[in-house]
């Protein structure tokens, strides 16, 4: 049994673009596991539902949201848990790191107090013990002069240090599961490298499970064990990371990989963009939401719902929701030919 098992998660919000009573679906039938000591990546662009998914797991969605399915953590369903019980889990067993530390840290409370607050609440540590522990945590996440920093306010820290302070708060109670939503997107690359290194160490050394939500395929390639690709609220592909990057089968996944400029790619090679925008979707019940942007789309992609199934050509576990997957080949040479003729 995985530490976190999300099953058939669906989230909708009232007041879609249509009439008043209409619900707009943000996430539809999403399932995934996060194992202890592993990093599960959730990848997608804006509107894919990746962030809402993480908020739902933490019970942090507004009350107007309708949430279905289950999120079983250590055998207990977080979605069915009463708020009070959930408060005991949040911050202690499950912690979250958000993209923008400036909006999730309290600007009028010192960094030290924000860390000791968590410790005192969940571990019942004395003020003094919590203070010492907080200093150690800041040192552990690589903040220089940690004891002095404890007395400072968030605005006195640089962006990278704030994010590390957020991670320190998240780690305060040695959570079993860390949910990180675009944890390095607001950071510069050299600082991002430091933070990713730190998070990788955590998972390896402490056996923490991590759910990493990002749009950055590079970050995923370096850190995640399994990768789940979401599009318009549904899972379109999932595989172990080497498998996914070597043999992307869904047209959206392969399209994303072909559209990002790579630092190690020869110059002058033209990028292959995905036409249209993430807004150009059709409902999943009417076929594949990606069909309007997909070069391989035909009648098979419209009209009937497509299931998420095991890729029969894969040796390991590789799930796919596509009527016309990318032909199974080690992509190198044939892909080059396609580009030359294009």
């Amino acid at each position: 049994m995985a530490l976190l098992e999300v099953r058939d998660l669906s989230i909708s919000f009232p007041g879609g673009s249509g009439r008043g009573s209409a619900l707009s679906k943000a996430v539809d039938g999403v399932s995934f596991d996060v194992e202890a000591g592993q990093v599960a990546g959730l990848v997608g662009e804006s509107g894919s539902g990746k962030s809402v998914t993480s908020l739902a797991v933490m019970g942090l969605l507004p009350h107007t949201a309708r949430v279905g399915g289950s999120a079983s953590f250590d055998g207990r369903d977080l979605l069915a848990m009463p708020e009070r019980e959930l408060e005991g889990v949040r911050g202690r067993d499950v912690a979250m790191v958000f993209q923008d530390p400036m909006t999730s840290l309290n600007p009028v409370v010192t960094v030290g107090t924000q860390i000791t607050e968590v410790l005192r609440r969940h571990t019942g540590a004395s003020r003094r013990a919590a203070r010492d522990e907080a200093g150690e945590l800041l040192a552990r996440v690589g903040i220089p002069a940690p004891v002095r920093r404890l007395r400072e306010y968030p605005h006195q820290l640089s962006g990278g240090m704030r994010q590390r302070a957020m991670i320190a708060i998240a780690l305060a109670c040695s959570p079993k599961l860390l949910i990180a939503d675009e944890p390095t997107t607001a950071l510069d690359v050299t600082i991002q490298a430091q933070v990713l290194e730190l998070m990788g160490e955590l998972v390896r050394e402490r056996g923490t499970a991590m759910l990493l939500i990002t749009h950055d395929l590079g970050v995923v390639a370096g850190l995640c064990d399994t990768v789940t690709v979401m599009y318009s609220g549904r899972v379109v592909e999932r595989a172990e990371r080497h498998e996914l990057f070597a043999r992307p089968r869904h047209r959206y996944t392969s399209g994303l990989l072909a559209s990002v400029p790579r630092l190690d790619a020869p110059r002058g090679q033209r990028l292959q963009p995905i036409p249209g925008t993430p807004r150009d979707v059709i409902g999943w019940d009417a076929g594949c939401a990606f069909a309007p942007r997909c070069s391989a789309a035909d009648d098979a992609c419209r009209g009937t719902e497509l299931p998420l199934v095991q890729d029969p050509t894969a040796s390991g576990r590789h799930l796919l929701r596509c009527a016309h997957p990318v032909p199974d080949q080690r992509a190198d040479e044939p892909a080059d030919e396609q580009e030359r003729s294009a």
């Binding site: 690359v189 991002q192 590079g218 390639a221 630092l263 190690d264």
Partner: peptide, 18 residues
């Protein structure tokens, strides 16, 4: 420090951390 969307590259390269 720039992440490359390729696990093979990511696993083998050496980062110079600042």
């Amino acid at each position: 420090a720039v992440p490359v969307p390729d696990p093979v590259v990511e696993d083998t390269r050496e980062r110079i951390l600042l």
